[in-house]
């Protein structure tokens, strides 16, 4: 059996295992644990999309929350029933075509992604002329503008009241399905010649330009694809938490995704996956410090805000002492796994 067929078989096995796990989890785990599993998948999609933009292409973007907001709002408006929309939009009724349209969940999520991508494209063309930290601030600015606009467009977004009671279609199957789709697409993209160009731009943009690469074009495409998956992630997140409002999409959200990507390892797909598991679980686990703790007859009151203190401290420590994150730029591969066992073999 050559390594290619072996890897295909192993990939299929891993998929089957994942399927079996989800099937088992749905029947046996409680709602909270399932919610954490869901969050892991959505965070992984978001981290992968940021990794494509920042880790693989070197564009420091802080606009993720904005793209997520677009995805979440688009999806929510498309999957609510017309009756729900009529009740919910109190300040001003939802404008006409949107108030009667209702689409299946898959279409709504894809539409959320596409709209985010379209916006990403519009933003990319002016701001990608900037580099480094200026790009970060400009994209952060765009995310904030999106939030302000969402707050004020009452007739589409229901303003500051937000949207409640979004149908919870985003179950484990949908979330992990979208995650696999994202994973497949990004692995193929990064592994292709296109991906090589992106990495060349990241490592030295001036050199890449000198090689005759139209770096601007490649950056715009990578940014737009990243925005698409950020929109998808936002759409799933909206359905997962069932309530969205403009405040939810503040800078903190981008910060969390950045944290996952950096902790996992910039430029590593495996890293983003591991990072989203570790950080999501850590964030949930840290809720303990905000809850009152009872030891014997003593009760230590919970400290609100402590969770984010520890979390941000963790980010600082990672950057100071292990800036390459968990994986660095390495990737998991079957070949390496088997290469380790077969001593003296060619590792293939």
């Amino acid at each position: 059996m050559n390594s290619r067929t072996r890897n295909t078989v192993l990939n299929c096995l891993a998929l089957a295992l994942l399927g079996a796990f989800i099937w088992w989890a749905e029947g046996n785990l409680d709602g909270y644990k399932i919610q954490v599993l869901n969050l892991i998948a959505v965070n992984a999609i978001l981290a992968l999309s940021l990794n494509l933009i920042y880790g693989f292409t070197g564009m420091f973007s802080l606009g993720h929350a904005g793209f997520m907001a677009i995805g979440a709002y688009t999806c929510a408006i498309l999957i609510l029933t017309p009756a729900q929309k009529e009740i919910m939009w109190i300040l001003e009724p939802l404008i006409w075509p949107l108030s009667v349209i209702q689409t299946p969940f898959f279409v709504a999520v894809a539409a959320g992604g596409l709209l985010a991508a379209l916006l990403g494209l519009l933003i990319a063309i002016p701001v990608l002329r900037l580099g480094g930290d200026y790009l970060g601030i400009a994209t952060l600015g765009f995310a904030e503008i999106i939030r302000v606009v969402l707050t004020n467009l009452d007739f589409i977004t229901n303003g500051a009241l937000g949207i409640k009671g979004i149908p919870a279609y985003a179950n484990l199957w949908w979330n992990y399905g979208w995650l696999l789709l994202t994973l497949f697409f990004i692995i193929r993209l990064v592994g292709s010649n296109f991906g090589n160009v992106l990495k060349a731009i990241r490592d030295d943009e001036i050199a890449a330009k000198n090689m005759g690469i139209n770096t601007f074009f490649f950056k715009v495409v990578a940014f737009t694809v990243g925005a698409f998956f950020a929109g998808v992630g936002g759409a799933l997140m909206g359905s997962l938490v069932s309530t969205i409002d403009p405040k939810m999409f503040a800078f903190t959200l981008t910060f969390n995704i950045l944290m996952i990507t950096v902790a996992g390892g910039l430029g590593s797909i495996t890293g983003s996956l591991i990072g989203s598991v570790v950080i999501t679980v850590l964030l949930e686990w840290l809720r303990i410090v905000e809850n009152p703790l009872v030891i014997g007859s003593f009760e230590i009151p919970g400290i609100p805000g402590m969770r984010m203190v520890i979390f941000s401290l963790a980010l600082i420590l990672i950057i100071l002492f292990r800036s390459e994150g968990i994986m660095g730029m390495r990737e998991f591969s079957w070949n390496r796994l088997f290469g380790r066992f077969s001593r003296g073999g060619d590792g293939a």
Binding site: F255, G305, M308, S312, L315
Partner: peptide, 27 residues
């Protein structure tokens, strides 16, 4: 400690510090 690291590393550290001070202030 990050003077010789890539510039964006220091920026991420700065964002981390900003969140840290904000949340510590809440506490």
């Amino acid at each position: 400690p990050l003077r010789d690291a890539p510039r964006i590393s220091a920026l991420i550290s700065a964002i981390g510090v900003s969140f840290f001070i904000q949340n510590l202030s809440i506490v």
